[in-house]
Simulated assay, not measured.
Amino acid sequence: MDCYECHTVERSTTAVATCRECGVALCPGHLHVETKEIHKEAGLGKTTGGIAARRVVCPTCRRAELSV
């Protein structure tokens, strides 16, 4: 599978991941890796895990999230 972002500029680059939000395929040059704490309901509150999860997003979804 090829990177969608590269495809839009008529380049062919092998994808290595998909965006967590929209599902487009991404090459290493276009993906953004973020970390996210995982929360779980626990009684009357929440508990946070000790290890942060990895999250991959495309440039479009990242810009959309940062604009809010």
Rank of each mutant, 00 (worst) to 15 (best):
T35Y: 05
R55F: 14
C6F: 07
C58E: 02
G45M: 02
M1A: 14
A64C: 06
V68K: 14
K46I: 02
C19V: 01
C6N: 04
D2V: 12
E21Q: 11
E37K: 13
T14W: 02
V24T: 10
V56C: 14
C61H: 00
R63F: 02
C22V: 00
G50A: 14
G45L: 03
T48C: 06
R20T: 06
R11E: 15
I51Q: 06
E34C: 13
R63G: 06
R55P: 00
A15N: 09
L31K: 11
V9S: 12
A52C: 07
H7K: 13
G43L: 14
P28H: 02
E41L: 10
T13Y: 08
V9T: 13
T48N: 01
T47C: 12
E5R: 08
P28G: 00
V16M: 05
H7R: 11
K40D: 11
G50K: 15
L44D: 12
V68Q: 13
A64L: 09
T47D: 11
V56A: 13
A17T: 11
K40N: 11
T14P: 04
P59N: 01
R54L: 12
P59C: 04
E37F: 06
G43W: 07
C19S: 02
R20V: 04
G29K: 08
I51Y: 07
G49S: 08
C22F: 00
V56G: 08
C19M: 11
T47S: 15
L26I: 04
